[in-house]
Design a protein around this nucleic acid. Structure first.
Lengths: 110, 110
DNA sequence: GTACATATATGGTAACACCACATATGGAGT
DNA sequence: ACTCCATATGTGGTGTTACCATATATGTAC
């Protein structure tokens, strides 16, 4: 079952989209993806955190630690200018990809 | 750029769909995917042939050699009963996946 | 006789989601 | 007090799989 494979790469688009308008921390992103996808998508921490480091290293997102009393420290991420460009490009790529799959696999537009 | 990653797993759905109604050989499948996707999807031989062996080993597709004078031998694949079930399941999974991505990434239905 | 399309095949590499496990804090239930 | 769960971040090792480069073999066109 290729479900696992489809998730590869899609994670980037999801993360970038979710922090497009407001900064979020890792755990929140994981929970958001799970709830908004109605359980269809679930990224494990061992995928999520390394991904965030990769995106930050590439300069697409920018993280900063926020410490609050009576709470474990959180790292909040926001989209950089470069990240905005990448997000736009990935949205376009995703749309073309999904259309191609639907055309070949004969899935009625969904 | 996650384009490469998205292709992982999608190959199975594409192959199974393309041999749903008529048997085809490997090279033909590669060319069909490229043309029908208008160049968006292109699977290299080093991905395609090993994939066909995997699918056959799993019993989802059934291949047989066809030799014709003045032509290199070709291996034609057809969908097995088990393959039909898998195809139906994968179509469903793909649709749910694409919908989830679109919902979260804010892509207008495409 | 060279170039290209057709057609199948494979050893090695890179990417990345996942498993299992780890650390740390706060609140709810018993 | 103690257990359990939700919150929150972190990592070493594994498995899957698309791709690179390269190989073999046939037919057609220039």
């Amino acid at each position: 079952m290729p479900e696992r494979e489809w998730k590869k790469g899609s994670a980037e688009l999801l993360i970038l989209s979710l922090i497009e308008h407001e900064q979020r921390h890792g755990y929140e992103l994981g929970k958001l993806i799970e709830s908004r996808s109605k359980g269809v998508l679930r990224f494990h921490v061992a995928s999520l955190y390394p991904l965030l480091y990769r995106l930050e290293k590439r300069g697409w997102i920018d993280g900063r630690w926020v410490e609050k009393a009576g709470q474990r420290r959180r790292r909040y991420y926001r989209l950089t200018a470069e990240g905005k460009k990448v997000l736009a490009a990935q949205r376009k790529t995703w749309t073309a990809f999904a259309e191609a799959i639907n055309r070949i696999a004969g899935v009625q537009h969904a």
